Simulated scan of single mutants.
Amino acid sequence: MSDLLQLQGVTKRFGGLTAVNDVSLSVREGQIYSLIGPNGAGKTTLFNLISAVFRPTSGSILFQGQDLTRMPTHALARLGIARTFQNLAVFKHETVVNNLLVGMHSHLRSDPFSSALFWGRTRREELRARDRVEEIIDFLEIEDIRDHPVGTLSYGQQKRVELGRALAISPKLLLLDEMVSGMNQEEREDIARFILDLKDELGMTVFMVEHDMGIVMDISDRVCVVNYGSKIAEGTPSEIAQNPAVVEAYLGTKRSAA
């Protein structure tokens, strides 16, 4: 399989602070790729660079060979890049179904006239969007809460809805930022299972920032470790777990969550 995402010498400076320092990495199609490191290591900044929240000071970010460094954030969805956030970004007063429909927005192409009359292309797009939402509801096993306002759900359920909204655009690359943070053990295991199913059943590529080392080591194909903004190691989970530089910088003597 070919490289889907490539970072080449990416650096980000905020004034005199270098948050990301000359990082290069490649994520191949169909991989689960994890980015780990201590708090303040530059992980979220790197994610924000990939999702065009920030622009790099230097270096390039390529998605299927296309440079993302000058692209607006809203354009990424149509390229096939979706992201969840460490802090919930759901519409809490809307139902689960309506939250998922919001994720379909990037696929809509109807003109205002057709939309006003709800005919032709608009009607076909609406039906396709609702079919896609039903598929996501089945996949994430949230049929019983589909009509509930998201704000009334548990934290873990809300995170599942946020994942569903990201899936609504049928992404080629799914960016997961601290997906299981704040969840109990059962919820974490469910999310890990969903991520594996995304790869195995749908062939989706997943790039995740994660602190839960159990999940990282269990489901990742490849792991990249950053510390003080620099990449210090990359390899398979077993290689990373045995890397002395990683053990010293992050894992410590025990493979526990940071």
Rank of each mutant, 00 (worst) to 15 (best):
R28L: 10
R28E: 15
E29D: 14
E29M: 12
E29K: 15
E29C: 13
E29R: 13
E29N: 12
E29F: 12
G30E: 03
G30L: 04
Q31S: 14
Q31C: 02
Q31H: 13
Q31V: 09
I32T: 01
I32A: 09
I32M: 09
Y33L: 05
Y33N: 07
S34N: 05
S34Y: 10
S34H: 10
S34V: 08
S34C: 05
L35E: 06
L35I: 10
L35H: 01
I36E: 09
I36G: 09
I36W: 05
I36P: 00
I36V: 04
G37M: 04
G37Y: 00
G37L: 01
G37H: 01
P38L: 00
P38E: 03
P38R: 03
N39K: 03
N39M: 04
G40I: 00
G40M: 02
G40W: 00
G40T: 00
G40Q: 02
A41G: 04
A41W: 05
A41K: 03
A41I: 03
A41C: 04
G42K: 06
G42V: 00
G42W: 05
G42P: 00
G42N: 08
G42L: 06
G42Y: 03
K43S: 00
K43D: 01
K43F: 01
K43R: 00
T44N: 07
T44P: 11
T44F: 13
T45D: 04
T45A: 02
L46N: 06
L46E: 07
L46V: 10
F47Q: 01
F47E: 04
F47I: 07
F47Y: 11
F47R: 03
N48L: 11
N48S: 10
L49F: 12
L49S: 11
L49P: 10
I50M: 04
I50D: 07
I50Q: 06
I50G: 05
I50W: 04
S51T: 12
S51L: 11
A52D: 11
A52N: 12
A52F: 08
A52W: 11
V53F: 15
V53W: 14
V53Y: 14
V53I: 15
V53P: 10
F54R: 12
F54L: 14
F54M: 13
F54P: 06
F54H: 15
R55C: 11
R55M: 14
R55I: 13
R55T: 14
R55P: 13
P56E: 02
P56I: 09
T57S: 14
T57M: 11
T57D: 10
T57Q: 02
T57L: 07
T57I: 03
T57H: 05
T57V: 09
S58C: 13
S58I: 10
G59C: 03
G59K: 09
G59E: 06
S60R: 15
S60A: 15
S60L: 15
